[in-house]
Design a protein around this nucleic acid. Structure first.
Lengths: 263, 263
DNA sequence: GCAGATAATTGACCTGAATCAATTACCAGG
DNA sequence: CCTGGTAATTGATTCAGGTCAATTATCTGC
């Protein structure tokens, strides 16, 4: 069925429109085999539960891509499913075009996250994935991942776990939450993910526009502005353009509905 | 933080015919091994892509449960994850209790659907699953399914596919839809599911209450009533209590936003 | 068949967030 | 340094769907 071998070259067609160049892409295209064992992502990437020996086997099917520029697509909806990708650096968004021709953002993907798995059941990518920032990924042929998984229960379990987590996440977002709750949860989720990657957990940069956030949270972008402004006014946050700083985490948790409302 | 869900490819309601009065103690607990190869579910159950020989191996890990009564729980949130279950007959709903103590329905599960997979990533069931109707299930130890999966790529792929389908579904359903669209999609989804199981595709019984439907679709139950009434008035449907008949499928598709609005 | 309890429907009203509509802040390119 | 274009903010208004409330069906057990 899916017999792909190792590395279906990146089929990333080039960007559409706005290809602004945040250059300092630096580094140049390094296509050499990577040593997962020495990757900075370490514990948060796919092979986290593998032994040193298993990681060596895993490395054989990995290919690091060259840098991906903002606006450049990794996959497009409808593409044949050959590879999944693991984000090394940067940020991606995945989206579909709904029946009214509107873009609907499905998720944002940070380093260490696996993207493209949505294509398994149809054999085609159902979403398009585009870089929001200068980024880099490792490509993994799905066929070989899957073959390898049958030889390595730990890897198989890890894949199940990743999909299971995504399902839980989607269920949360699809919940019936107020605009405040959505935005608070969104900011907290980013905070956690950055923290997990070794960055500050109360100060970070948003790689995406207000419109993307709004689409992802199913709100109007005006509402995102207003809620952020309100949170700033009540000194829960400081927001300046793309820069966010969490000033009062307890209050944010309360807004997210995660803490017993104080009273 | 995560609300979670019930992972079962499809979520729909109903039961075949009202089986309510079938359960005089008769039948007793039949816990014998079942022959999957002769199961009425056939192609829609998990081992659908396995060879005859593989099915024999699969049967060794299957245990048919005794009948499950309406209101009886199969799993409860927090239970240790040991087994998944495949619905044989009847209908289940999965739900969680949200941070406000409200029940949130995550899905409805019909014959042929696998439930309990949501527990993979934490090792605990994150949702509770309860029968809505007199039902029966096959239990499968997850450990053995997973072991078997590593020996059978087809089974592994099938599991990936089930989870992948659920992800796609959630991505769609979690969209920003009107009450009319939600309800139309819900009714159409049920219709499809029934058809797939050999029942009429334009007439069926809802196994769940209006409140359950409302919770699942994140609407108020009053809204469900009103929308159904409106659809009835415009002769798209005939609804009598739990009995639904689709009179004008084209119109329903249009309401669901799946067809170009006629004009 | 009746009584009490629960589910569903229907109506009146209210509210959170969308939509419409200006501004205002930020770019990138000439 | 302007200049046109996009993104973000802010305000005014509207509306879909929620909430509250009152009936009216349905189911249960006695």
């Amino acid at each position: 069925m899916h017999s792909t071998l190792g590395l279906a070259a990146n089929q990333a067609p080039l960007s559409n429109r706005v290809t602004r160049h945040l250059d300092h892409a630096g580094r140049g295209a390094q296509r050499r085999q990577v040593a997962c064992s020495r990757c900075a992502l370490g514990e948060i990437c796919l092979p986290r539960s593998l032994s040193a020996e298993q990681i060596r086997a895993f490395e054989k099917i990995v290919q690091r891509s060259k840098p991906v520029q903002p606006g450049e697509h990794l996959f497009r909806a409808g593409d044949e499913f050959q590879t999944v990708a693991s984000v090394r650096t940067g940020c991606f968004k995945s989206y579909v075009i709904d029946h009214q021709g509107q873009e609907q953002v499905l998720g944002f993907h940070l380093p260490g996250e696996l993207i493209g798995l949505d294509a398994i059941h149809t054999g085609q990518h159902s979403a398009s994935i585009v870089a929001l920032d200068t980024s880099a990924v490792c490509f993994l042929g799905f066929g070989s991942v899957s073959t390898l998984a049958s030889q390595m229960p730990e890897l198989q379990t890890e894949l199940f776990r990743i999909m299971s987590r995504r399902i839980n996440e989607l269920e949360t977002v699809s919940g019936d939450l107020s605009a405040d709750e959505r935005i608070a949860l969104f900011l907290l989720s980013l905070s956690e993910r950055f923290a997990q990657r070794g960055y500050s957990n109360n100060e970070y940069m948003l790689a995406m526009s207000r419109k993307d956030i709004a689409s992802y949270l199913r709100l109007a972008s005006e509402t995102v502005s207003r809620v952020l402004a309100r949170m700033q006014k009540s000194t829960v946050l400081r927001v300046d353009r793309k820069h966010v700083r969490i000033l009062n985490r307890a209050a944010l948790l309360r807004l997210a509905g995660l803490e017993p409302a104080a009273h």
